[in-house]
Write a protein that binds this DNA or RNA. Structure first.
Lengths: 244, 244
DNA sequence: GACTTCTGTTGCGTATTTTGAACTATAGGA
DNA sequence: TCCTATAGTTCAAAATACGCAACAGAAGTC
């Protein structure tokens, strides 16, 4: 059960998702807790260093401690570790933004990104979630799942605006047949994205994606770039198999 | 007080620092908790998604949930957000690895890094901590602190191997006079690192550092690169002042 | 400026919650 | 095969966290 731990972590999570510092009453209303309860929880979270008083008025903000702990976890992640050199090579070869993503529930979670060091505000960032159907990485992974499982997900997910179930189904079939996924204006207007799944024991455990401006990626260019993407994903799959 | 929250977060932290999956008894010994207590805490952490059973034997490992939450926190960090474009510009101008770091207690905490996309295993990674005295970023920030405060830190810190207090004190004075810090073989053998503090309201709140191989960075090259570093730090300070 | 209504924090008594020992079950090693 | 690890569960005892109320202060309103 451990109710206190539950509430404390929920509180931390809420604070992490908040834009600015927040007070106890406000947080209490959002989480259905009393002011005094929230106040005390914030006090202990502050003692532990996960939170700090931002105002003299008693509003709190999340510190970087959770980030630090999270980075330590991520630094050991075997998927990211084995994939990273291949992602860098792929970026070097294509000049495009390169992503590594996994499927978590109905979302895609971005694990890594290699981008040009120019100031290009890519929408997808490591740590972000996006609905799997909208983006190429998600479709690449879904295409290798059982159709009935995918169907259930389409039906259950609310954000299917402008996306017919049959269209999606057809796209996934096509994706699986040709071996790669593509979305146009998926995560961001004017962006084309290509993705290929990474397999471990015949399961699509991740996806490698690369994206660039629509104007730059005409069909000829895409065809020229695809082999590098397919190769990168294949080599990551192979490397994963050797690790375990 | 909130003892349960305390223990739960301590458990998560320990698990995040562990190399592989760990069992309840083992963790209990390390944290002075009973097996049943740890077992229950792990159960709720698993329910909340922060931890998962890695073995069928009942050993647990941290998931990426803490990382995800942490990344959401970091994505809003004003220091990193304002610094990032300048760090990228500095990297583009110099070709060196560029770092952003803050001082936390006796350690330096790396917030960001811009490096060449080639496979170069830099020792410092975002999220990592290193003793402030050892590395240029730390010295850059310490040099603008009150000497007595620094002295207390030197005395208290155990890892002062091969580092005389007077030598350090002299180096900090020199650093402050010339406006930048330098370490040779600081974080890693064969690496030279240069750093300059970033100020907010006359306090050294961060440091920008850049590093490269000793062979590449002779004095002539260093003198050529320094203005870019000083300029980057100054512009970040200025940008910070405009934000608040 | 006085008033009203928020805010965060803190005692305190109650009762909910957590706790640790004992117990079961299972797995690995000698 | 036994022995000793392990993890997980039950239950009564007790420590703990809870909400209410009270207080102090801030912020907005008339």
């Amino acid at each position: 059960m451990d109710k206190t731990l539950r509430k404390g972590l929920q509180l931390l999570e809420t604070l992490a998702a908040s834009n600015g510092p927040r007070g106890a009453a406000e947080l209490g209303r959002e989480l259905d807790l009393t002011r005094s309860n929230v106040s005390r929880l914030l006090g202990t979270l502050a003692e532990l260093g996960f939170v700090r008083r931002a105002d003299e008025a008693g509003r709190y903000a999340a510190t970087l401690k959770a980030w630090e702990i999270g980075m330590r976890i991520m630094s050991r992640d075997p998927l990211r570790r084995t994939a990273q050199p291949f992602l860098r090579a792929l970026h070097a070869e294509t000049g495009l933004n390169v992503f590594l993503a996994v499927l978590d529930g109905d979302d895609v979670l971005y694990l890594d990104k290699v981008e040009a060091n120019t100031i290009s505000h890519v929408s997808a960032q490591p740590g972000m979630r996006l609905p799997a159907f909208l983006i190429s990485s998600g479709r690449a992974m879904l295409a290798w799942h059982k159709p009935e499982m995918v169907g259930a997900r389409v039906a259950s997910h609310p954000r299917t605006a402008g996306l017919d179930r049959d269209d999606l189904s057809a796209d996934l079939t096509l994706t699986r047949e040709r071996g790669w996924a593509m979305t146009v204006d998926g995560s961001r207007e004017g962006v084309i994205s290509l993705a290929v799944p990474v397999f471990l024991a015949d399961l699509p455990v991740a996806a490698v994606a690369m994206s660039g401006p629509k104007a730059e990626l005409d069909q000829k260019r895409r065809e020229a770039l695809l082999p590098a993407l397919l190769n990168a994903a294949a080599r990551i799959s192979e490397a994963l198999a050797h690790i375990g």
